[in-house]
Amino acid sequence: MAQPFHLCIIDDDDIYRFTIIQSAKFSKIEHKTSVFQNGEEAINFIKENQDSPDALPNLILLDIDMPIMDGFQFLETYKTIGPNLTEKIPIYMVSSSVDPEDIEKAKSCEFVVDYLSKPLKSDKLKAIIEKTIGL
């Protein structure tokens, strides 16, 4: 792999972001991380880099509850961008919500690979990254 694995975290909870970054480190997989506090920031970043695939993340961990633009609103906007990208980005929704409606809604979205309940344990994160890389 020419480029290191690019993990993207979209979440307003800084403690959560910290734990994910730490867990990623423990996975011993070479990677880089980009974080966004809400959906809007992430969308802006993807839009800016949609013509340079190397800059785009390989995996997105998306929260539901966020200020400005929440996870579902992000997915709604992403619909117009995602299909144009040369490489499809697998998106995992990671939330503390146990609302069946949220889970159902998340799983029904075509870009979402799976819905994961917080806390996201480090071995689980490692497994997802490995699955994404195709190891």
Binding site: D13, Y16, T19, S122
Partner: peptide
Amino acid sequence: TSHNLRAPVSNLNSLVEI
């Protein structure tokens, strides 16, 4: 209640793991 308590508790769990 469940939601707002779950988020910090799951954070605590993750922190303990780390």
